[in-house]
Write a protein that binds this DNA or RNA. Structure first.
Length: 570
RNA sequence: GCGAUUGUAGUCCAGCGGUUAGGACGGGAGCUUCCCAAGCUUCUGACCCGGGUUCGAUUCCCGGCAAUCGCACCA
């Protein structure tokens, strides 16, 4: 799409009520947008398609968690420490600089230096303000999270969440129980997230307050298959692997077998993402999946793919699909001190024979009196390797105790083990809703230069208005009749729009511009005429073709069209 | 954040140191048996915010906010 068209699209969005820059009344704030009535409908419709796939087809469960979180959550997730840039300000002209960038000529990896090391580096290499030559001030952390306080005073530090995912991770015990302690466990959540971007750019592509649709699928680490994989294994994907960085088209099955995508469940959801995006109207020829480069991938990620679409801004990431391993649950387990494992039952309970240290209580009691209990416990906990030359040394309350063979025996015992505890792995398809929304608009936008005519070719499933209803003229009872048709057709699912003003052509144009797939016009043949029932015309947006249908079947026919019946079959 | 450019009705543009700031498109009302932005009448509505220079600023200067492009940055 050309830059001119992108500008036209933005003004269309503003004019017709898709999106409005926020707070325009007060001058606006960069990186913030409000959704107007049509935008809100379009966005909701996109969410519905997403929900129909994950909640409907896959049977995942949906939750809605808080946007303000206490600090602990993001300490565990790593956002407090990692989600920050180190800045320094010139003491003379106050200009801010990325501290690591100022010293990058002197270090291989300047971005790993701490604030203190950076300050020392300024002195060592005599670095001054690049703008005015003034002295640089202390290095400070600028965290990209919005900070706040929970409750009065500064009692508890909170942050606005930078992603919705953590709300799912911290609810893992509840969700696990809800799912009757079974894996896999799929959870979805949509909602707002917040990032205090330093310099938001590119319209809706980088927003400070944005909408996500996140999916966290918890799976058995040893079972990265997916039951429905075979249904889609021969479908194709356009991929850019990080090994060659060259675009390649292959089937889902091939991608897994050749090791391009790490495993079957990840590959399944890469393809699911393609299904979702195509269904909401992304042009498949402007869609590709790019694997994160090794240094781009989070250190814990097993594999990560971005869905990228071609926009007027260039190739833009709109969905990330990652195998995050056990990272998230491990971190929350560590920081919260709660067990976040899955108890994985073996098919058959296993008999395990182990050598164990067994304390001789009869001897320990008289010899150690009150300490005997603690010593026995320590002996049971001690590894077998601490027995040397028939003697065992253990440590109780800082005191080394040497025990002779009379105090214990090493016995071979057989135990029944029903299963094992594993930390589930997480497959995360994370969708930027606003980016998808904008991409859908760009890919739907068509403009005929010669006619100076704009049509948004939105998929009927996401189109905000499904049907326009017009009287050919607002007189002779046609308007009354058209209102009746409108009443019959309009519902929560099928948004209809009555328009009787201006000429008929203008009304079609108005509907084409906002992507309404069909228009019904009431004309003189619609008026009751003896025994023959009235008919109306229905017009298809993309072909402008018209057909006559019985007026009383209008609602039913729109329903059928929405369910996918081709217009040609009317 | 830096550099360049810019900010005038809902949208796109014109204009000026000095009375009522123009136009086009849009929107409203009305007329015309009106099926693809037809015509006519009529109405509607704007100088981004703050400070300075000046008798007087939408216009010139400074600052802020916002936008576009380039650079930098980007879970």
């Amino acid at each position: 799409m050309s830059e001119t068209n992108a500008n036209d699209l933005m003004s269309l969005c503003k004019r017709r009520g898709f999106i409005w820059p926020s707070f325009e009344l007060y001058g606006g704030v960069a990186g913030m947008y409000d959704y107007g009535p049509l935008g809100c409908s379009l966005r909701n419709n996109i969410v519905e398609v997403w929900r129909s796939i994950y909640k409907g087809r896959e049977g995942f469960v949906e939750i809605d968690s808080e946007t303000v979180n206490p600090r602990e959550v993001f300490k565990a997730s790593g956002h407090v420490d990692e989600f920050a840039d180190l800045l320094t300000y010139c003491t003379k002209c106050q200009s801010p600089f990325r501290a690591d960038h100022l010293v990058k000529d002197f270090y291989e990896n300047a971005d790993v230096l701490s604030a203190k090391q950076l300050e020392e580096a300024f002195v060592e290499h005599n670095i001054k303000c690049p703008d005015c030559g003034g002295d640089l001030g202390p290095v400070e952390e600028f965290n990209l999270m919005f900070k706040t306080h929970i409750g009065p005073g500064s009692a508890r530090v909170g942050y606005l969440r930078p992603e919705t995912a953590q709300g799912i991770f911290v609810n893992f015990p509840n969700l696990y129980r809800y799912n009757r302690e079974k894996m896999p466990l799929g959870v979805i959540q949509t909602g707002r997230s917040y990032r205090n971007e330093i310099a938001p750019r590119q319209g809706m592509i980088r927003m400070r307050e944005f909408n996500q649709m996140e999916v966290e699928l918890f799976v058995d680490p040893e079972d990265k298959d997916w039951p429905r994989f075979h249904e889609i294994e021969n479908e194709t994907l356009d991929l850019i692997p990080n090994t060659t960085c060259e675009p390649v088209t292959m089937t889902v099955k091939e991608a897994v077998e050749k090791g391009v995508i790490a495993n079957r469940v990840l590959a399944y959801f890469v393809y699911t993402t393609k299904q979702l995006l195509v269904r909401v109207g992304i042009d498949p020829s402007r869609l590709r999946f790019r694997e994160h480069l090794q240094d781009e991938m989070a250190h814990y990620a097993a594999d990560c793919w971005d869905a990228e679409v071609l926009l007027s801004y260039g190739w833009t990431e709109i969905v990330g699909i990652a195998d995050r391993g056990c990272w998230d649950l491990s971190r929350h387990a560590e920081f919260s001190g709660t067990d976040l494992t899955h108890f994985k039952m073996f098919d058959e309970p296993r008999e395990v024979t182990v050598d164990k240290i067994r304390p001789n209580h009869k001897a320990l009691g008289p010899a150690f009196k009150g300490k005997a209990k603690a010593i026995a416990a320590a002996m049971e906990a001690a590894p077998l390797s601490s027995v040397k030359d028939g003697r065992l040394t253990i440590n109780v309350d800082g005191e080394d105790i040497d025990l002779g063979p009379e105090f214990f025996e090493v016995a071979t015992v057989t135990e029944k083990v029903a299963g094992e505890r594993v930390i589930p792995h997480v497959i995360e398809p994370s969708h930027g809703l606003d980016r998808i929304f904008y991409s859908v608009l760009e890919h739907a936008y068509t403009h005929d230069e010669k006619e100076d005519y704009t049509v948004l070719r939105l998929a009927p499933a996401v189109a905000p208005i499904k049907v326009g209803v017009f009287p050919l003229m607002e007189k002779d009872g046609l308007d009354t009749l058209a209102h009746e048709v409108y009443e019959k057709v309009h519902s929560h699912r099928v948004e209809a729009y009555y328009d009787g003003s201006g000429t008929i052509g203008k009304r079609y144009a108005r509907m084409d511009e906002v992507g309404t797939p069909w228009c019904i016009t009431v004309d003189y043949d619609s008026l009751p005429n003896g025994s023959s029932p009235g008919t109306v015309t229905i017009r298809d947006r993309d072909t402008t073709e018209q057909k006559r249908i019985p007026m009383e079947k209008a609602a039913e026919i729109i329903d059928a069209l929405l369910d996918g019946m081709p217009f040609a079959e009317l």
